[in-house]
Design a protein around this nucleic acid. Structure first.
Lengths: 93, 93
DNA sequence: TTAGGATATTCTAATATTCTAATATGTACT
DNA sequence: AGTACATATTAGAATATTAGAATATCCTAA
């Protein structure tokens, strides 16, 4: 049985524990999005979106591919995210 | 389908997103513990344990009952915690 | 190669979090 | 009441996080 590393678990949860990042991740669970999509749909600034996406990327939650002059961000483990949100939904926050 | 409130979800994850609180929650998933148990087993100070327990309590993760002069803390939704950790374990952090 | 759109980076101010030390409160026992 | 043990609260310093403004970089098309 693999033991969990407290620091890593905490980091993962802390990274996901920001309302803007929750919005982003939720939006990405519907499909790939470029930065400007996220800006428009979520009503956040370009710089802010980019900063949060970077935090998510560094922490292996998302990744991106070039798509012409823009970048498409996507969840690296969409199943994990879906299950996580379902679990929280069931919990009743 | 109930929609998730970003702020609430983020708060829940942020509360759990601290290594000391992960340790505490993990320890409590094994059973009830009083503050001094947690101090000893986790090697944290009394004040620090108490502060983190308060954060967990205010955010509905734990609750406690008196037990003589000490207090027994316990998880309010142990199943949720177990599933959460299992999910993270499966993910591979 | 230049212009413009799309995204990233850097800096800063405001705010939040965390730990420690000191003090307070509460309970049990004599 | 007085003492000892268990826990909570407070205050303050150190650090981390966040959003926004300004600027830089990258890519594409002309």
């Amino acid at each position: 049985m693999v033991e969990l590393n407290y620091e890593e678990v905490a980091t993962l949860l802390r990274v996901l524990g920001n309302p803007t990042r929750v919005m982003i991740v939720k939006e990405l669970s519907k499909g790939q999005r470029c930065v400007c999509d996220l800006e428009n749909r979520l009503g956040i600034s370009q710089a802010n979106a980019s900063q949060h996406l970077n935090i998510l990327k560094v922490n292996n939650i998302v990744d991106c591919i070039r798509q012409g002059s823009s970048r498409c961000y996507y969840l690296k483990q969409p199943d994990f995210i879906k299950r996580l949100f379902e679990l929280i939904k069931k919990k009743g926050v």
